[in-house]
Amino acid sequence: MAKIVLLVACCLLIASCSKTKIVNKIELIQTIGVDLSGKSVKSTMLAGNYKKKGESGVQLLGTKSDTNLDMMSRINAQTRNPIEYGQLRMLLYGKEYSRKGIADMMQNLCHDSKLSTRMQLGVTDKEASDILAAVAQSEESYFLSDMIEHHIKNGTLPHNNLQIALFNYYGKGRDLFLPYLKLTEGKIVVDGLALFKDDKYVTKINMQEAFLLKMLIENSDNGTYLASIRATEQQSASPVLLHSISSKVKYSLNRLRPQPSLSVLVHMDAQIKYVPDWIDPTSSAHRSMLENELGSYFEQVLQALLSLCKKHNVDPAGLGDFVRSRSIRWNEQEFQASYPQMQTQVTVKLKIVETGVSL
């Protein structure tokens, strides 16, 4: 009993020594945008403005500096309460800032223990400050991070967060990719993925291609895709809307030198949401034809995505990392030189498990 009393007393003593922070006495930074403004760096922040119990709002803060290293101290000079960023859920880069390079920011993120590894990163087509201004009007400081997490869980974006982004950024044989957002007629839209080489933005892919990348890097269980097939060569292509129930990918290294050669095998179970009138999904013959045609279609578009990545010398699928894991003689510089000419053969085995259409 004496030991129990002593243990409880120690716990109370430790708790009493912790520093208590009252939520309406601090400024909680929840979203940050970073832009290039001439030769300066413009930082924009959304802070939760907690007034009374059950009431909250959003305040927009901003500063400019020659570097982003002191942005927190500069913002802190503008507020009546000290700022805290332990609840930061989103960091958004402007496109021009991303083109110049995000190495400093990524290094800061890597070393800051206050940040959650679940926070999201993204790139916007213009300035991050414009996106944050639109979010401020909605008074939802977590709007951007919630939107991206929704598209990851229920949509076509591959899994991503700070931990995955740092792994792709610092890992050998792979390149960083981040969600790409744009502002259209006052509405914020997720418009695909931004692809990086080292720390610099190179190009973007659309949402359809983001779904394909998701198939190449993870076993996915969600996502909708609008494909197209044709009955004959003379007939125009007809749309087919399908929902991916599950997909699994497997890589095989065929050859390492003189140029790497890879085989990619994708197994996909899909639910058909819409087919043209000339297809009867209840017919076993039509279903078999549809599986073969869609399998061939996905082989072509996946191969086209890999060709696009090789053209821009970016490796978001981590093919270099796979080759490295299969060879003790892997050399990063040698692989980078041969990557644009690397041979890839894609095979897709698609199975329709549900039609999902009523005729």
Rank of each mutant, 00 (worst) to 15 (best):
T156C: 14
L162V: 04
K351M: 07
S43W: 09
N76R: 05
T355D: 07
I328D: 14
L12W: 08
N161G: 04
Y170I: 09
K182L: 12
L319W: 14
G192T: 02
V323Q: 01
P260S: 02
M45L: 12
Q300C: 09
L265D: 15
D35L: 00
V346I: 04
T20S: 14
Y274K: 15
Y93E: 04
T124E: 09
T224A: 11
N292Y: 10
Q120N: 06
E140G: 07
D70A: 08
T355N: 12
P316I: 00
K3L: 15
R74M: 11
G48N: 07
L28W: 12
L213V: 03
L7A: 08
S56L: 08
M342R: 01
S246V: 10
N24Q: 09
L253V: 03
T184E: 15
S141M: 09
Y201R: 09
D35W: 02
K273Y: 12
I83G: 06
E291H: 05
Q87F: 12
K21R: 15
S238K: 13
K248W: 10
Q259E: 14
S56K: 11
G101Y: 02
R80A: 15
L212Y: 07
G57P: 03
F322M: 00
L306K: 03
G223S: 06
L308N: 13
L183A: 05
M207S: 05
I75Y: 00
I279M: 02
I4C: 06
F177N: 06
V58G: 01
M45Y: 07
R80Y: 14
L28A: 09
L241F: 12
P276Q: 01
L92A: 05
M45K: 07
Y142K: 12
Q235N: 08
V357C: 04
K273L: 15
A237F: 12
E293H: 08
L226K: 14
L46G: 00
C10M: 13
N24M: 04
D130V: 04
D277W: 11
I229A: 02
G155W: 01
D221S: 14
I245N: 11
V323K: 02
Q259S: 14
Q341Y: 09
E27N: 15
I4M: 10
I14N: 10
L166F: 00
L166N: 01
L166T: 01
S65H: 08
R74G: 09
L241A: 14
R324Y: 06
L36I: 08
Q341D: 13
E209N: 05
H286N: 15
V275N: 03
M119E: 06
N331C: 08
G295M: 01
E185K: 08
V301H: 10
T124A: 09
F322A: 00
K52E: 15
I352E: 02
L216E: 03
K19T: 14
L28K: 04
I29D: 11
S327F: 07
I102Q: 04
D198L: 04
E218M: 02
P82G: 05
R326M: 01
S263R: 07
H267F: 14
A128W: 02
K95H: 09
